[in-house]
Nucleic acid binder design. Structure first.
Lengths: 111, 111
DNA sequence: ATAATTAATCGTAATTTTACGATATATAAA
DNA sequence: TTTATATATCGTAAAATTACGATTAATTAT
């Protein structure tokens, strides 16, 4: 048969999956959307609009930050969160290349 | 303050998150890529190229199928899996509108 | 100096995910 | 009919996720 095993450790594979996982929750997408709708860095207002405990929102923010999708700057007693443009760009690129791969003409359509 | 609570049950929000979650694992992305690289419907060859137990691969296939990203047709003793074009299109659309939302000009870039 | 405020972190419980081997089921081959 | 094959499902264990309230740490206000 001689089928080559797939390398599950491929950099872009792992990174794409991690980014997808990071936005794989309604609350986290909502946070990104909320941040995008502001031209000023908002901070803990996020907690006000998300109907969850402060600690839970903080956890979701951490996930987004660790995935590189948002940035957070401490400003006094508050923390200023905003979108991470670089992370979003990377995300968009990885996804568009994934989609173009999945849409390649040699992809069958038998079912 | 008068801040409007975010509706976390929004159809597209929930659906986008579910799709993202479905591809939020390297194995599942690898399966999609493998399926796209074939012009014939392959079946259990997936199990051969993924270095995981058959039952585990089957579970991942189920996740992808339930998310509407692949289709599976039983053909005799084998099962023929292939990409679900409609699901992928939907995915692409939801993601592109999410990205354009996140890239809107009024989105701040203060950090 | 003390009190109030913001937000992260801790501890915890409930649920979900991921992986495995074993088993069941259904078809095809002998 | 019996045997082999492919694949789904079951049972289970370990780990991760999600949510919460309580606490802590840091800063600002009194």
């Amino acid at each position: 048969m001689e089928t080559t095993r797939i390398n599950l450790q491929s950099k872009s594979l792992v990174r794409t999956a991690a980014l997808a996982k990071a936005i794989g929750h309604p609350v986290r997408i909502a946070i990104l959307q909320f941040l995008s709708g502001r031209d000023v860095c908002i901070c803990g207002d996020i907690t006000d609009v998300i109907p969850l405990a402060q600690s839970t929102v903080s956890q979701h923010l951490k996930v987004l930050k660790e995935a590189g999708l948002i940035k957070g700057d401490v400003e006094g007693v508050k923390t200023c969160y905003c979108l991470n443009r670089d992370g979003l760009r990377e995300f968009e690129q990885l996804f568009s290349s994934l989609f173009s791969e999945l849409n390649s003409p040699d992809s069958g359509n038998c079912c």
